[in-house]
Write a protein that binds this DNA or RNA. Sequence first.
DNA 1: TCAAAAACATGATATTTGTCATGTAATTAG
DNA 2: CTAATTACATGACAAATATCATGTTTTTGA
Lengths: 225, 225
Amino acid sequence: MSKCDSCIVKEFNALKSLTRDELMRVSACKTGKIYRKGQVIFEEGEILNGVYCVKDGVCKLTKLSENGKDQVVKLVVKGGMLGKRSLVSEQKTNLSAVALNDMEMCFIPKSEIMSDLARNPKFTMDVLREMAEDLKESDESLVNMAQKSVKRRMADILIYAQDNFGNDSEGYLSIILSREDYASIVGTATESAIRILSQFKKEGLISTSGKRIKIEDVHGLKWIE
Amino acid sequence: MSKCDSCIVKEFNALKSLTRDELMRVSACKTGKIYRKGQVIFEEGEILNGVYCVKDGVCKLTKLSENGKDQVVKLVVKGGMLGKRSLVSEQKTNLSAVALNDMEMCFIPKSEIMSDLARNPKFTMDVLREMAEDLKESDESLVNMAQKSVKRRMADILIYAQDNFGNDSEGYLSIILSREDYASIVGTATESAIRILSQFKKEGLISTSGKRIKIEDVHGLKWIE
DNA sequence: TCAAAAACATGATATTTGTCATGTAATTAG
DNA sequence: CTAATTACATGACAAATATCATGTTTTTGA
């Protein structure tokens, strides 16, 4: 298996701040994992004993609401780390992680990384920085959920997907989500999500081909209230 | 001014993990501040150069939404710390802080605390832990905003207020918020907040006296959908 | 202390969103 | 390949919530 030392993915997360020696040790104990689309990586309530580093693919972090519906809290892509909270808490994880397409990940046991957290301040600060960024983003989403219309939120996620995951060769969003996923991200009923996407299509804001979505008019999408 | 060393408030936050020496240094550079009800502590977009430690009173952390309404993201009470994100980022703060009643706070310049963050792993880990907890709470709120009804969220905040801020001698919630504040916490129009509280009153779930609210039937409140 | 301002309250109505029902298209398992 | 399942789509309606209007009460500041 490839060495963390030479892994480009780590440049996107806190692992970049580990020393060469620390990285060697992490390399030795990490395990590579493959997850298929739809597969559960971990589930709300489990106790995680390590962190996952996403090498490829996308997954959703969700939380089950009391009404029985899953709400997507965050999408994680290449370079992202899952389970950071397990490093500072013995508590059960508050989120589930599910692969949205085929994924490649590395799992690093908590035991190996904890000593680094205690000894390498640069690394700790980086983890802290990431956590702070997550918090900022979560607060932003919270405000959007509370104050923006479902239509506005749907437009936002489409634009977000384009900006963050890009388009395929034909101009369709690279990330392919079910209508149910969209509903779960936006926080609405599946039927409402479908209806809104249909409406966007009618209005020429997007076009579709099967599950694939192409943004035809970003400005129009940005204008929605 | 009192010494941090002997300040009981610090036991509730990461400052408790500073050494005696570090606390002495913090003591020497901190400045005590008083804020009156309604006063702005800092505003979204400012660059904070330190953290605030809440000695007494309650404040709200808010974020302005694009629709022009403020959304309350978190309430902070005695022992809480504001501006943690400023310790790991040069970015402008993403939230505003406003006193909900008269407050007593200590301001600790970032410059003084940064060296401790780099040298005292216990302290850093504590800050990390607090941030992780904030993140968890924010994610929970996000899910609640997306999935629960306004009525349910209103019931939740009332119960939360009772659990976290307690009651006065007559059994009314100790924390006194305007209907607008309730609306801004719940994420709804002020009229809707008023209407829901009126309804709760009619149904005997709460009673009121001026701005003060007394929970008469916690179970009833918990049952609301 | 009194006038002005702010907060509270409620009705009427419009808009948004959810739910249930039903049908079609796409995917998947055998 | 085909039956069965799942995803998508849309209509009809109900429920939740926002908005606008208007009046009352409370608070505030000169």
